[in-house]
Simulated scan of single mutants.
Amino acid sequence: MKGTFSDNDQIELVSSFSELINTEFQGAMNTVCWERNLIGDFKEIVSKLQLEDNITEVSPEDLLSLQLSESGRMAREIILNDMQLLTDHGALPSLNLLKSYERDEELDFISTDVYSYHVDRSPIGTNTFLCTYHGAASDILPNDEAIQKILIPEIREKLKALHDGPENEFEDFLKEYFFDLHYQPKPNAQPINLGVGHLWKIAVDHPEQKVLPCVHRAPIENEGEYRLLLIC
């Protein structure tokens, strides 16, 4: 992590789930962090879960079936409580055991996978919530330290050649294939790592959004280590 959360205008720190839910984005602030120092053995949980694919969704029932030490049970209780809080709020939390995400290698001049800095988009007013319990954690970038890839001249020209259609349909083409959601860090950009154990709310691009959406990316996984990620 470069710097601290409290030093950054982009991040609002809170100390409860209620504050996380009720704090509204404003100005440059487009992320809210329920900063936590979690107690429990989350690595034990990861070691006892079965990875069925590169990404395996873990249900509450899967967690409850694990035979755990006292420290592992403490970690499980935290995860189950987070899932219940988000569910009660109306969200649909998904707990994922991750080896890796799928890579986008179709085009050599632009990447549109989750390892690329990007923003989330929704047709309705919503937020993205996420918490990394174990493994590498996601990064965010201040919006003024990132540029839309479609605005970089050499990338834009290659996308126009790929489109090979009427000029008035080009912007729709960029949205249809999600090219407009992806960003490139500017020189000397300072990513902020979201860390382990904190529950984050990040701004999404939607019609009622009053702030810029949060630019973020999935991390490169640590060698030989799975991630345990709650997201919705």
Rank of each mutant, 00 (worst) to 15 (best):
P185T: 15
P207I: 04
H182A: 03
T87Q: 10
I45K: 08
I124N: 12
T128S: 09
R76N: 11
E223N: 15
R76G: 08
A203P: 00
V215P: 10
A203L: 00
C33A: 05
F42R: 11
E24V: 12
E61K: 02
L229F: 11
E106R: 11
L80H: 09
I21C: 15
L95F: 14
L174N: 05
S69C: 03
L228Y: 00
C232W: 06
F129W: 11
T112M: 15
D88E: 14
V32Q: 12
S69I: 04
D172N: 13
E106M: 09
I124P: 05
L92P: 03
T31F: 01
L228Q: 00
R227P: 11
T56M: 00
Q10S: 04
D144Y: 12
S47D: 11
L85T: 00
G165T: 07
R227I: 09
A146G: 09
Q190M: 05
E145P: 06
G90S: 15
K186V: 05
L49D: 03
A137Y: 00
K210C: 09
S111D: 06
Y226F: 03
N168S: 06
G72Y: 12
K2C: 02
I192C: 02
L229A: 08
P60M: 06
H89S: 10
L92S: 09
S15G: 01
G195I: 05
K158F: 03
S16C: 04
S65T: 04
K158G: 05
P166R: 02
K175A: 09
N188H: 02
T56I: 00
E105Y: 04
D62R: 02
A161V: 09
R76P: 09
L98F: 01
K158A: 08
M83D: 12
Y133I: 08
R76W: 09
N81E: 13
P93I: 00
T128L: 11
L38E: 07
P185W: 14
F42N: 12
V196L: 06
P93D: 00
F25N: 11
K158R: 08
G90P: 14
K186E: 05
Y117R: 07
G125R: 10
L20Q: 07
V14H: 10
I220F: 07
S6F: 04
S16N: 03
D164S: 03
Y115V: 09
D7P: 06
C214L: 11
K160A: 01
L68G: 01
N188G: 01
I11R: 06
E24H: 14
P191Q: 09
H134I: 08
S122N: 08
L80M: 11
G90K: 14
L159P: 03
E171Y: 04
L86W: 14
I150V: 01
S122R: 01
L51I: 02
L199V: 07
V211E: 08
N22Y: 15
H198M: 01
E171K: 07
A203M: 01
P153Q: 08
I79W: 09
F129P: 08
L68E: 00
D139Q: 14
V215H: 10
E52V: 02
E167C: 00
V46L: 03
L64M: 12
E157D: 10
E24A: 13
V204F: 04
Q84M: 03
G40V: 01
L199Q: 03
L86E: 14
P142E: 02
L86A: 15
W34V: 01
A218R: 13
C214G: 11
I202L: 13
A75G: 02
D144P: 10
G40C: 03
L141V: 04
I192F: 06
L230K: 12
T23E: 02
N8Q: 13
E223M: 15
